[in-house]
Design a protein around this nucleic acid. Structure first.
Length: 255
DNA sequence: ATGGCTTAAAAATTAAGA
């Protein structure tokens, strides 16, 4: 089964690229972030014509997540239970026996902002909830935009980024806490090129200069990691005209 | 230089992303 996650930065703008992605990569499951579309405007018809069903939780302008799948998704759950949040950042569903958790983690803006403390609290709530989910679902994947670069090798210029959001120690502790639940960063199960990133700044030719961060991840339980045969970043999608600032990340797992 | 693009709101600017 091929699974993918992509922060599309507006599903409306990126829909043609998404349809091309689905047609050429043929993923079984795709988790989308920053759809920025209310549920009543979700492009279900276009995706259905492409052979994908969709479950989604969106809002106007900001945030918004969706899970696309070739086969029917069941047991859909929205948000983090017990964590009151108007921001649409989480949707989970079961597809072919695999629990799929799609996350758009908060950005945090800057370490002295309210949004940073919201980000830390959000990750704490996510960890608590995933602990319960993991007890129920040995085959579980958490995919999406985590807005955390786990290590310095995930940052194009660690000195320049030191202490800022996405790399600060408290954020990286939150990422490690997810791994300590028993999840594996699928990308690091394999040899990877140096300076592999999943996001590049739109400004200052960030992509051409490879000024990026690896902040989009696919985390797998041991049961899924054991059958994982690849984990890659689809840089080609970032090369298109009018791209998202994020590239899709993909992983292949045994059925 | 707290900028540099891109998006969505709305109708020229502003907020937010990362």
């Amino acid at each position: 089964m091929k699974i993918a996650a992509w922060n599309v930065n507006s599903l409306k703008v990126r829909l043609p690229q998404l349809l091309d992605f689905l047609a050429t990569r043929r993923p079984d499951v795709v988790c989308l972030q920053e759809t920025k579309v209310p549920d009543d405007a979700f492009p279900s018809v276009e995706l259905s014509a492409a052979g994908y069903r969709a479950v989604f939780s969106g809002q106007k302008t900001y945030n918004g997540v969706a899970i696309l799948s070739r086969s029917q998704a069941t047991d859909v759950s929205v948000g983090i239970p017990g964590f009151g949040d108007e921001q649409k950042r989480v949707i989970a569903a079961t597809v072919e026996g695999t629990r799929v958790v799609c996350v758009y983690c908060p950005n945090g803006q800057s370490p002295d902002s309210d949004k940073y403390f919201y980000k830390l609290a959000w990750f704490d709530a996510l960890s608590l909830w995933l602990m319960e989910e993991l007890a129920r679902h040995p085959r579980l994947a958490v995919l999406g935009d985590f807005n955390i670069a786990p290590e310095d090798r995930d940052v194009h210029d660690p000195k320049a980024w030191e202490g800022s959001v996405h790399v600060s120690p408290r954020e990286r502790e939150r990422f490690q806490a997810l791994l300590q639940l028993g999840l594996k960063d699928s990308f690091r199960l394999f040899e990877q090129p140096e300076k592999s990133f999943s996001w590049w700044d739109y400004r200052m030719m960030g992509f051409r200069r490879n000024h990026g961060l690896r902040i989009d991840h696919i985390l797998l339980t041991d049961a899924l990691a054991a059958s994982c045969t690849s984990s890659t970043i689809d840089r080609d999608m970032r090369k298109l005209e009018r791209p998202s600032d994020h590239a899709p990340v993909l992983a292949e797992i045994g059925v």
